[in-house]
C-alpha cells in the first residue's frame, strides 16, 4: 500500500514537471489569469481527457494484477558514477523502439507464461491511441509512458511490464505500477486524475506566478468535485478489463484544448513540453 504514496508524489521522477496539462497554450493566449480560470480549465478537462486516461489506467491495473511477474528484473539505473562505458539504458531494453502505432497493432499475441498470460497490451495501447485523436497528445502520452516505465523498472522490479513495449501510453504504465504497489483500479484512476490536476495547477503557478496556496485549494477541490469521474473511470476500466475488451473504454473530449494542444506542439518558445 505504501508504494501508492510514492506514485502520488509529484516528485516521482517521471518527467511530469515538464508538462502543463495543456494549460500553457491557454495562458499564452491570455485566457487564464486567476485560480478560478484554472478551475474552469479543469472543469472541462477532468471529466473528458481525465476520464479517458483514468479508465485505461484502471483497466491496466486490473489486467496487471492478474498477469505474471516478468521473467527477469531489468537492471535499474544505479551504476556508480564512474561507469563511463557500457552504461545501461533501461528504456532501450524494451520490446519495440519506434513506430509504436503500427508496432502496437502488429505485435499482437504475446508469449504466455505458464498458466498466466500477459495481457494483450497492444490492443489496449491502440484503443488509447484511437481515443486520442491529436497526434501531439499521443506523443506526449508515450513520452510520459516511456519515462514512467523507467521509474517503474527501478522502483517496482516485479511489475508486470512484459509486453508493454518501449513507449506505451502512460495510462497503461500507471495502471501496471499501481498494481505493483498493491493498489486497486480505483486507485489507478484516482492517480491519473490527480496527476492531470497537479500538472495543470503546478504549471499555472510557474507560468503566472499565481499563489501556490490558492492553487493547492483548486487541486483539492477538483479532486473532490470530480470524484464521480474517478468512480466512473474505475468502473469502466474494471468492466473493460473483465470483458478483455478495450472497446468498452470511454471516449470524451472537448474541442478547444485539443486544438490548443496542436498549436502548442507547433509553437516556438514553449516552456512546457505539453
Amino acid at each position: 500500500m505504501s508504494g501508492l504514496w510514492l506514485l502520488a508524489d509529484s516528485r516521482l521522477p517521471t518527467g511530469g514537471h515538464a508538462h502543463s496539462g495543456g494549460i500553457e497554450a491557454a495562458v499564452r493566449r491570455g485566457l487564464v489569469s486567476a485560480p478560478d480560470d484554472v478551475a474552469g480549465w479543469l472543469g472541462g478537462r477532468v471529466p473528458t481527457a481525465g476520464l479517458v486516461t483514468a479508465a485505461p489506467s484502471a483497466a491496466a491495473c486490473a489486467l496487471a494484477a492478474a498477469a505474471p511477474a516478468p521473467a527477469r528484473a531489468l537492471s535499474a539505473r544505479g551504476e556508480p558514477s564512474d561507469a563511463l562505458v557500457d552504461r545501461t539504458f533501461p528504456s532501450r531494453t524494451g520490446v519495440s523502439e519506434r513506430g509504436e502505432e503500427s508496432a502496437a497493432l502488429a505485435g499482437r499475441g504475446f508469449p504466455s507464461c505458464g498458466e498466466l498470460r500477459s495481457p494483450d497490451w497492444a490492443r489496449w495501447d491502440a484503443a488509447i491511441s484511437a481515443r486520442t485523436p491529436v497526434a501531439a497528445l499521443r506523443e506526449v502520452s508515450r513520452t510520459q509512458g516511456r519515462a514512467m516505465l523507467r521509474t517503474v523498472r527501478s522502483a517496482w522490479p516485479d511489475a508486470a511490464i512484459d509486453g508493454l513495449g518501449a513507449r506505451p501510453h502512460q495510462a497503461l504504465v500507471l495502471g501496471v505500477a499501481t498494481a505493483a504497489a498493491n493498489g486497486s483500479p480505483h486507485d489507478a484512476a484516482a492517480l491519473a486524475v490527480h496527476h492531470l490536476v497537479g500538472q495543470v495547477c503546478s504549471a499555472a503557478v510557474r507560468l503566472l506566478g499565481l499563489d501556490p496556496l490558492a492553487l493547492a485549494g483548486v487541486h483539492a477541490r477538483a479532486l473532490d468535485e470530480h470524484r464521480d469521474v474517478i468512480d466512473r473511470a474505475a468502473d469502466a476500466g474494471t468492466d473493460a478489463a473483465a470483458l478483455d475488451d478495450p472497446d468498452h473504454l470511454p471516449s470524451a473530449t472537448t474541442p478547444l484544448p485539443e486544438v490548443l494542444a496542436v498549436l502548442h506542439a507547433r509553437s516556438e518558445g514553449a516552456l512546457f513540453a505539453s
Binding site: L31, A252, P255, L256
Partner: peptide, 26 residues
C-alpha cells in the same frame, strides 16, 4: 482495426464546457 473513437462533449448551459476547458465561449 479501430483508429478513432472520440466523443466531443458540448453544453451551452454548462459553465465548464462553454468555458476555456470546453469551447472557450465559442
Amino acid at each position: 482495426t479501430p483508429i478513432l473513437a472520440t466523443t466531443t462533449v458540448l453544453d451551452g448551459a454548462d459553465a465548464a464546457l462553454i468555458g476555456l476547458g470546453g469551447t472557450g465561449g465559442a
